[in-house]
Computed example of a mutant assay.
Amino acid sequence: MVNEAVRLQAVRKDYGRVTALDGVDLAFPQGGFTAVMGPSGSGKSTFLHCAAGLDRPTSGTVHLDGQELSALSETRLTKLRRDRVGFVFQAFNLLPSLTVAQNVVLPLRLAGRRVEGKLVARMLAHVGLSERRRHLPGELSGGQQQRVAIARALVTRPAVLFADEPTGALDTRTAAEVLALLRESVRGGLTVVMVTHDPVAAAHADRVVFLADGRVAGELARPTPGAVAERMTHLGAWAGASAVGA
């Protein structure tokens, strides 16, 4: 049996009278790369927030790195996110006054952990920025800044990296380089869960999970851009038929 890095069971999330997630059951294997897609309002962001422990579901359970999140205090949950979870967003969220190397080690410093020079050098080499360690973010291209953000997410050696539209602000060629970097990290044993709207980006994953109206609307293994795009065009019809049959 494949070990699971993340599992959601019967997860529901309500915001007042609005149901953002409606009984989601999903598992993400260790060392896997999964893309999550769906139309606007399908629950993708809410799913990511609940799966990563940034928000608590209304009901259901989330297991992350072997721990049930609902059983953790806010202090323990914060520590789990800090130590075992990495985040990469469309906005790079780098501190403009810090160098590349200083941005990368920031999570370690905030956690009071010792900064190992060899680890920092390895992270910068992994993202191809060894020669840019003393540069400020404003001196880098968008793709280089996103690679700094990935190195920062990986420096704590997390169990899972959650990426929310990581290529949304990048051109096609640069986006492909960033996705190849995530793919390489998965080969090293990292689990990546990526929310995206882009079928080409999703095709870099091992599988694609589709959401519609807060529910799982199917999966696609070994995805291609064409197959992903075709499936996306049918999600509206799926959601409508599901609502009629409910």
Rank of each mutant, 00 (worst) to 15 (best):
V2N: 13
E4P: 00
V6S: 01
L8E: 02
Q9K: 14
Q9G: 00
Y15H: 04
G16C: 01
T19E: 08
G32E: 09
T34F: 15
M37Q: 05
G38A: 10
P39Y: 06
P39M: 00
P39L: 02
S40A: 03
G43D: 00
K44C: 01
S45Q: 05
F47L: 10
L54D: 00
D55Q: 11
T58L: 08
V62R: 13
H63Q: 14
H63G: 07
R84K: 03
V85N: 05
G86K: 11
A101I: 05
V105N: 08
V105H: 01
E116D: 15
V120C: 06
L124A: 10
R132P: 07
R132Q: 10
L136F: 15
G138Q: 10
G138A: 06
R152S: 02
A153R: 12
L154P: 01
T156Y: 09
V160G: 00
L161S: 02
G168W: 07
V178A: 02
A180I: 09
L181G: 00
L181W: 13
R183A: 02
R183L: 06
G189H: 10
V193R: 05
V193C: 00
T196D: 04
D198C: 01
D198T: 07
V200W: 13
A203I: 08
L211M: 06
D213E: 14
R222Q: 12
A229F: 07
H234L: 15
